[in-house]
Every structure is written in structure tokens, then in C-alpha cells.
């Protein structure tokens, strides 16, 4: 769980724990986050990721463990005295203020004079690609995407050392979210700041992150690059969390549901991604009957039955006629497509 070796550590989490009564919402979390890194903490609801980010921002005090910002212990520092900033899930914009007043808030708290405050706010409006005349507009008159950008600008205004983002896109509709994901990534590159992003969507994490930490029951189950997480999940939980996936039990070198022998079985469970199942080629293959066909834009998803085993396959939509329910076909894959997991 070490950060990029070439870059210094911006934030070090050392055994961070938060207990509520007998329950440990965050249970001994340790991680080094590198300067300028985009780290995403991903987990289902109740995994403790929201509590964790509140610990990082100083809105909650840890029961045990330490938090080091560039080597300085900030564990006991309250939120208003930490040089970090957070974008809230609800955005938590000050609806009784204008866009400009929202963005300037942190500077006003620092006692910065109105003129430089305003200059900085206008600079940030440009950074988040909002027109400058939004400065005097009430935030209540902004659309969802605009509010999102105001929240980003507000958090960045005081030039925080680290930016925490607690599911800021969760309330936004799908298409706008896709756009904002890309913008957020760009913003990360332009500012060069360290971003710690919280989400329940691994898909979102994949798009933006340098590194992903998958959280479950207050602990990190896997930390790695998006590709590592995707290709080499450490267990069924991580594999299933990435979306629809085929998980097959292995007994004596045989995929038990399919009755198919596989060479070099390296664990009790085989994880096979839907796109690994192809209609042509593949050293291994199963005869399957199509139960349902779902057209997903450029791809087709087949829900299959092979023996007693249900499978999901995703193939490109173009090129050949779609299979319908009741059709039978051979779906092939290679042994290298399988990720073996122990639990």
C-alpha cells in the first residue's frame, strides 16, 4: 500500500479508526497518498467511506490512529484549521449567498481584503469554466452542473493542500455526470493538486483515478491502479463490485457449473468478465442457450444458460445478426482471461 515512489507523500493515514459504540465504521485504515495523486476510495453504502472522508477533513475525530499531512501530525486539528478542503455530497452551497460570496468564503474567513478576494473568485470561475458574470448571481439560480462547479471553485479558493470530494456527482443525472467526470479529471491535471475522491461507483473511479482503494466493512480490501483492480481483483467482492461479472466455483480443476476443465486453476473461484466471452475463437468454450438479449448501444449483452450455470456475455453489436432467446451458440474464452480469487 505504498504511494508512487518518485513523489513525496502528501497525506499519510496510519491505522485510522473510528468506532461508534461497538461498531468500527473505519477499522485501522493505512494508506500513503502521493503529492498530486488522484486517489479514489470506493465502496458500497455502509462500507465506512463517508466516515473515512469526514475523518480526513477533520469533521469527525478518530478513535485511534494518526493522520499526517506532509509529515505534520494533524490528527487533533479541527476542520477549520486544516489546510484541506472538501466538496460535499450535497454540495452544501450557501443558498443565501451569491456565487461569488460562496467562492470567496474561505478567503473571507482568512481575512483577505475584498479586492483580491474578488480577483481570486473570478480566476476560479474561469478555472471551472463558468462565465464571470455568474459572480453576482444567487446560487439558487444555478443549474445542477453549475452548482457542482461553484462547489469545486469554493473548495479550491483557499488553495488547499488536498481536496476531498465526497460523492459530489451522485445527485447528477447520467449524461451530465459523464461530462463532469472528464472535467474533474482535467481540473485535477490543471491544478496539479492531490484529490481524494469518494464514490460508490467503481465505473466513476475507473475513469478518473490514479489509484483506487476498495473499501468494505471499514477496511481496505484492495488498493491498486484501476487496471490492477479490474484485471486482478483479490476476491469475489471486489470482482462483483465492478459490475456484472461471472463468478464460477472450481472443483478439482473443473469449472463446476459448466463441467469444463481448465488448466492451471489457481484458486477456488474463477472470475470471468462478460466481455471475455466471445462468439468466435477462444481456446475454451461452452455451448449455451440465450435466455435474454439486451442491446446496450454499441454492445449486446446476452444472458445465457449453460448446463445449470447462468452466464453473462457482452459482445460488440455490429457485424452479425443478434441472437434471440432460445438460440444456441458457442461462447469462447481463453484461460488467460480468468482471474483467480481465493475467497
Amino acid at each position: 500500500m505504498h504511494a508512487h515512489p518518485a513523489r513525496p507523500v502528501a497525506l499519510a493515514l496510519a491505522g485510522l479508526t473510528r468506532r461508534f459504540g461497538a461498531l468500527a465504521a473505519v477499522d485501522g485504515v493505512t494508506l500513503d497518498i502521493a503529492e498530486g495523486e488522484f486517489v479514489t476510495i470506493v465502496g458500497p453504502s455502509g462500507s465506512g467511506k463517508s466516515t473515512l472522508v469526514r475523518l480526513l477533513a477533520g469533521l469527525e475525530a478518530p478513535s485511534a490512529g494518526r493522520l499526517l499531512l506532509r509529515g505534520r501530525d494533524i490528527t487533533g486539528l479541527p476542520a477549520n484549521r486544516r489546510p484541506t478542503a472538501m466538496v460535499f455530497q450535497s454540495l452544501a452551497l450557501f443558498d443565501h449567498r451569491t456565487v461569488g460570496q460562496n467562492i470567496e468564503f474561505a478567503l473571507k474567513m482568512k481575512g483577505v481584503a475584498p479586492k483580491p478576494r474578488r480577483d481570486r473568485a473570478l480566476e476560479l470561475l474561469r478555472l471551472v469554466r463558468l462565465p464571470e458574470d455568474y459572480y453576482g448571481r444567487p446560487v439558487t439560480q444555478c443549474s445542477g452542473g453549475e452548482r457542482q462547479r461553484v462547489a469545486m471553485a469554493r473548495a479550491l479558493a483557499s488553495d488547499p493542500e488536498i481536496l476531498f470530494l465526497d460523492e459530489p456527482l451522485s445527485a447528477i443525472d447520467y449524461r451530465l455526470r459523464k461530462t463532469l467526470e472528464v472535467e474533474l479529471k482535467e481540473l485535477h491535471q490543471r491544478t496539479g493538486k492531490t484529490f481524494v475522491y469518494i464514490t460508490h461507483s467503481l465505473e466513476e473511479a475507473m475513469v478518473m483515478s490514479d489509484r483506487i482503494a476498495v473499501m468494505r466493512a471499514g477496511r481496505f480490501v484492495q488498493v491498486g491502479s484501476p487496471e490492477e483492480i479490474y484485471r486482478r481483483p483479490v476476491n469475489r467482492f471486489v470482482a462483483a463490485f465492478m459490475g456484472e461479472v461471472n463468478i464460477l466455483a472450481v472443483e478439482g480443476g473443473v469449472l463446476s457449473g459448466l463441467g469444463l476443465a481448465v488448466p492451471d486453476a489457481a484458486g477456488p473461484f474463477a472470475v470471468l468478465r462478460p466481455e471475455a466471452l466471445r462468439l468466435d475463437g477462444g481456446a475454451l468454450g461452452v455451448e449455451a442457450e440465450v435466455a435474454q438479449t439486451l442491446l446496450l448501444g454499441s454492445r449486446v449483452q446476452y444472458h445465457l444458460r449453460a448446463g445449470g450455470q447462468a452466464l453473462i456475455a457482452e459482445v460488440p453489436a455490429g457485424g452479425r445478426a443478434l441472437l434471440g432467446p432460445g438460440d444456441r451458440a458457442r461462447f469462447g474464452f481463453d484461460a488467460a482471461d480468468i482471474a483467480w480469487v481465493a475467497e
Binding site: A79, N80, S90, A92, F94, H96, F105, K108, M109, R154
Partner: peptide, 27 residues
Amino acid sequence: VPADRIEAARDLGAGRLAVFREVELPL
């Protein structure tokens, strides 16, 4: 007064008095 607005203000550097003046009182 939503609790997250108070937290946002604290996160942005507001002390107890500033939270009262800038967020709690107007809301």
C-alpha cells in the same frame, strides 16, 4: 439550518463565531 452547511463553513476555515454569523444566523 442544514448540518452540512455548518460543516462546509468549518471546513472552509470558519471558527465558531464566523459559522454563527455567516451561516446559522442568516439561515
